[in-house]
Design a protein around this nucleic acid. Structure first.
Lengths: 144, 144
DNA sequence: TGTTGTTAGTTACAAAAGCAACCACTACAC
DNA sequence: GTGTAGTGGTTGCTTTTGTAACTAACAACA
């Protein structure tokens, strides 16, 4: 009576995805949090500028599926840390082109290095084929 | 000069995992949030009790890798919504066995049904083999 | 018995996220 | 031009989360 429907929580994809995402994020967080006092969204913004080059906040919002307040505050924090510069576009003064300062670039170099090593470490626990399938399925699920 | 290290952000597993987890969570959230005014941790606690049967808050913490304050608050909220009951264990009065009320059980039935359908929908975009590999690699990454 | 250490769970306060209103600017209609 | 609608970005306020300190109960042992 009142028998459970045979629903397996640990197999539920949104749940599993969150567990995996949190576990991997928690470990990587140490790098940018301990060393540079950065928050998650700051790290994300920094990496977008580092990987793709200068762009506006709006472009980061769209690329990262991040709400504009998150980006705005992250940009403010990175700017206060002297990691990025904002330059108003003269032809449309609503836009600000964001770009890394020399300091921001060196922080990015350091962190992207750590990221690459960490990614390699994660993948080392898997076969090559698993990694390929994992990345491609995650991309589909993320709607990219 | 200042050339980017060839670091591919969209392939970085912690980033990709978060994107996928957020996308899938956001859609499923509609079910428990709109309909029952529940928060993420409340949903998780409800499902643990529904899937595994009565247990203590501590057991949920361990099973779900959730901090005890999160569980404590979720239990408080679910209790206020009359979805679960707490019963002190006489042999060790620090422990409280949590169990779903009739109402909680019916909410769980409804939500686990929706979850199952949503999971099936997510998997429908993938091949059977992809799903198998995805689940197993996520379990490894989650440290389960 | 008391004293010390540990565990389950709560609570208070600080940090962060979410949401909606807002400002400055542009685009386009009239 | 003037008015209206839309866009990029910021700010203020509320809700949620994180952290640490706390209570109550138990265990072990002198």
């Amino acid at each position: 009576m009142t028998e459970k429907p045979d629903f397996a929580l640990p197999d539920f994809l949104p749940y599993l995805l969150n567990q995996a995402a949190e576990a991997s994020s928690a470990e990587f967080q140490q790098h940018y949090r301990m060393k540079y006092g950065m928050l998650r969204n700051e790290w994300r913004v920094l990496f977008h500028l580092g990987c793709y080059g200068p762009m506006t906040a709006k472009q980061i919002c769209d690329l990262a599926s991040l709400h504009k307040t998150k980006v705005s505050r992250a940009v403010g924090a990175l700017s206060a840390k002297r990691m990025l510069m904002r330059e108003t576009v003269p032809t449309d003064r609503r836009n600000e082109i964001l770009s890394l300062t020399r300091h921001g670039a060196s922080v990015f170099a350091d962190l992207s290095d750590a990221a690459q090593r960490y990614d390699a470490k994660l993948c080392a626990a898997l076969t090559v084929e698993e990694v390929v399938v994992l990345r491609s399925t995650l991309r589909k699920l993320a709607g990219l």
